[in-house]
């Protein structure tokens, strides 16, 4: 019966029963938690770094069309290069350990964030800048009372997308340069011929991804960006 083989597994693929017991074992002995925290830590660091650089730069480029015309070809040139193609350079520049992983996640999150923030600030309706000129907003007020809040809905959407990408990429990055994290768990499981480890890691990745996305969706419902939904 096919459902029996799902439960008990086959030669190659572990069954549900074994997966459940491995999941139980790895969660209770702290291995799963340790790897998850390691992955989340790398994503957080690389992602924050990307946000801190890409969002201000993107908002700036969106308001300075001429500079953007100069920079954009470079961005479009670098963007389609898969973050994983940077692995050799990441290892060359940063050795092994956390730092090459930070770098790869940074690359993965940076370009989508940069492009979306550029679009977000470039598409602010010019009338708001006329109001700002009329009210004599200072340069600083123009940034934090106009460009930032007006661009926020677009930025948050980009945060959501690029966090998803970062989470996808961290696993791949961890298969290469480090000895911890969910990606490492997968590679380790493969080398040890423990496909149940692999599956448990995959399940965890999926669940964390879902949770991260839920957090980001909550951001989208914040008062400060709700206007976007109602405003044409």
């Amino acid at each position: 019966m096919w459902w029996l083989s799902i439960w008990n597994g086959t030669e190659q693929v572990p069954g549900l029963r074994q997966i459940a017991s491995t999941l139980y074992e790895l969660s209770t002995n702290g291995v799963l938690l340790r790897h998850t925290v390691a992955s989340l830590f790398r994503v957080t660091a690389g992602f924050y770094l990307a946000v801190a650089l890409a969002v201000p730069l993107g908002l700036f480029l969106g308001r300075h069309a001429r500079i953007n015309r100069l920079v954009n070809p470079f961005v479009q040139f670098l963007r389609p290069i898969s973050p994983l193609a940077w692995v050799p350079f990441a290892m060359l520049w940063f050795g092994i350990g956390d730092r090459p992983a930070f770098f790869i996640i940074f690359i993965a999150a940076f370009f989508p964030l940069l492009i979306s923030s550029t679009t977000a600030s470039a598409s602010i309706h010019p009338i708001y800048f006329q109001v700002a000129a009329n009210l004599h907003l200072t340069k600083w007020e123009r940034i934090h009372r106009l460009v930032l809040p007006a661009g926020m809905p677009g930025i948050i959407l980009a945060l959501r997308v690029s966090l998803g990408i970062s989470w996808m990429v961290v696993v791949a990055a961890e298969m290469i340069a480090v000895k911890s994290g969910l990606g490492y768990l997968i590679i380790d499981g493969r080398n040890a011929l423990r496909l149940d480890f692999v599956i448990v890691a995959m399940l965890t990745i999926g669940i964390i991804g879902l949770l991260l996305d839920l957090c980001m969706t909550r951001l989208e419902k914040m008062e400060a960006v709700r206007w976007r939904l109602e405003h044409k």
Binding site: Q130, V131, N134, H136, R145, R228
Partner: peptide
């Protein structure tokens, strides 16, 4: 433009985020 020459726009220009 000057702060005491105030313009009320045809399109409506309250800041929607405030």
């Amino acid at each position: 433009p000057r702060p005491d020459h105030v313009f009320v726009f045809q399109e409506g220009a309250l800041f929607p985020w405030l």
